[in-house]
Design a binder for these strands. Structure first.
Lengths: 343, 343
DNA sequence: GTGAAAGCGCTAACAT
DNA sequence: ATGTTAGCGCTTTCAC
């Protein structure tokens, strides 16, 4: 069984491969009757277009490479789904790779992705990524848009959310409820969202005249486990907080859980605000008050911005910050003085 | 700025492209000194291997196409992460596409994926997929392994979990706690996991001599929303259940939530068992008793089975069912007669 | 409206 | 140890 290529269709039909190629792409220049015959035979023989071959010729692959640090975090899974959807709608397929927070693995992965010659890339970089880490990519001039996390000093399209503003919303809400000792749980300085959210925290407190207490900040990656550990540490403090804003929902879930281990409950005798608004946030008990970061829109926008740049590489660079939205639910409550309940 | 290919390296160094090609792949046949020079110049010029070109020649792409119905469900996101990890470790990159439960979109997607000439495919098919839907793939002979959901009547590698056994474990557990009116929440007959889990439900009840009550089955896709709706319907029954096993964790979360809307609580006055054991299951309140389906192993195994078949296409077909494991946590409790509490 | 021919960048025989 | 040559399957001028 010989593999079926344009060649064999051309020969069987006694036309040229050029004609077959045109016919299969439904070119108006080919006679309707010829098109018809070609297309029928192609279907009959089970012809499958070979994109590698076409790419070699056209220098277009219709692939978008997506490099994410983590797709196990529901937030990024949701963003990825949106990217995939938008890309597919535009006729492009996703080439996917992940690297955790490893710069070394990220470097390897980015190189490999590049070898496939995607038409563009969408990246959410690993923590600690510097301008230099992206140098090969930058030099290659491949259309590139950064998503969620941005790298300092590079002139690239970027779509993320206004993280500082988002945390600001959370602080305003908590202060409005009477809280003044507010912890910041998780987030790190090694990636932009961590920095921005910390900034939002600091500025938010300042705006309300609340002095910053470094003891109330618990830097760590935003995971369930770290959220749990942080809340425990926070409540062990001599002068513990009465509320916390968390770097992301995962950390918030962990924190709410940790609270429970200590016989406390978010929304009753402690207040927790998350960040992201993943699908399960609304379903938790108590339902999580959190900052919505619009993963659908972020993914879709990233795909569209990339598409625009592929179409027109000379475009000025865009940096879009999605407006966050506070979703007030049940994990926050007015401050009430805790009665001393030491058994 | 002319693009750098083997050709230009060859010319600058006054050697042949064959030598350059060999040298870059670190072939032992090339003189060490030559290799050295070639590799240095390549690095200097920022040469990037062109896999499209290589693929055309070698008929290998080192891509694995992954077609999933949904990556927004944390279960599949976790499986995907495991697949990606294993594939990357074996030097392959993931080409990703999703299609929800749409057969029409699935058909398009599968065709597109095939055009990229991946070395193999890993598929979790859309609900309702029949043998005929996979016919083009089957005919093409591309290495293919099915994951989680299997299609009746096709002779393909498959890795999933022993879903019937898993639900059996859940039923045993609930019956052991004294429950006899046990609902089955979500799951549909249009995909194999739905069928298998329903079978596990029926057989589990039968094994304990409990008659099957069709009114206690609530077929639907396994989503949070459907789980919530189902539990409400279940509790509105004249003779309501005292426990439920859910098609998956998402449905279980929805059900626990629905319970709460009705003033009830899983693990106290109702028992809920999930299926999958996604990351948040252990963190829920109450922590979800659920059947662990080992997404890590499933993803890894799928990648490995596919790799084996790529290496040796003649291999006999394998069908592996992972042994499920019941994780007993806090959402289940001994049956106690409800005091009539109608206000 | 269709065909001939060249070439995208690489690898694999085969020759030297 | 290195070079020559052909060709993977497609698209694109350019002729006719």
């Amino acid at each position: 069984m010989t593999r079926v290529t344009l060649q064999v269709i051309a020969e069987t039909l006694a036309v040229s491969t050029a004609t077959v190629s045109l016919a299969l792409r439904d070119s108006p220049v080919v006679a309707a009757e010829t098109k018809e015959r070609v297309q029928r035979l192609a279907a009959e023989l089970g012809y499958v277009y070979n994109r590698s071959a076409a790419s070699l010729r056209t220098a277009r692959t219709n692939m978008v490479a997506v490099g994410f640090h983590d797709i196990t975090n529901p937030y990024f899974a949701e963003v990825l789904a949106a990217v995939e959807d938008a890309a597919m709608a535009a006729g492009r397929t996703i080439l996917l790779a992940t690297y955790g927070e490893s710069l070394e693995r990220q470097a390897r992965v980015l190189r490999t992705l590049r070898e496939y010659r995607p038409d563009g890339m969408i990246l959410c970089v690993a923590a600690g990524t510097q301008k230099e880490d992206l140098a090969p990519l930058l030099a290659s001039g491949i259309p590139l848009t950064q998503l969620s996390r941005e790298t300092a000093g590079v002139d690239l399209d970027f779509v993320g959310s206004d993280d500082a503003a988002g945390v600001g919303l959370a602080i305003d809400h908590l202060v409005g409820l009477g809280h003044r000792r507010i912890a910041m749980i998780c987030g790190m300085d090694s990636y932009s969202t961590g920095r921005a959210r910390r900034r939002g925290y600091c500025e938010g407190l300042a705006a309300h005249g609340i002095p910053l207490d470094p003891a109330l900040m618990f830097p760590a990656y935003g995971t369930r486990e770290n959220g749990l550990a942080a809340i425990q540490a926070a409540l062990a403090l001599p002068d513990p907080p009465t509320a916390a804003v968390c770097f992301n929902d995962l950390a918030a879930f962990g924190a709410m859980n940790g609270l429970r281990h200590l016989g406390r409950e978010a929304g009753r005798d402690f207040s927790i605000v998350g960040c992201d608004d993943v699908a399960e946030a609304a379903q938790w008990f108590p339902a999580l008050t959190t900052v919505r970061n619009r993963q659908d829109e972020m993914g879709r926008l990233a795909a569209q911005m990339l598409a625009a740049r592929i179409r027109e590489p000379g475009l000025p660079t865009r940096r879009v910050l999605l407006e966050p939205l506070l979703m007030v639910r049940a994990s926050t409550a007015p401050l009430r003085e805790r009665r001393v309940a030491t058994a």
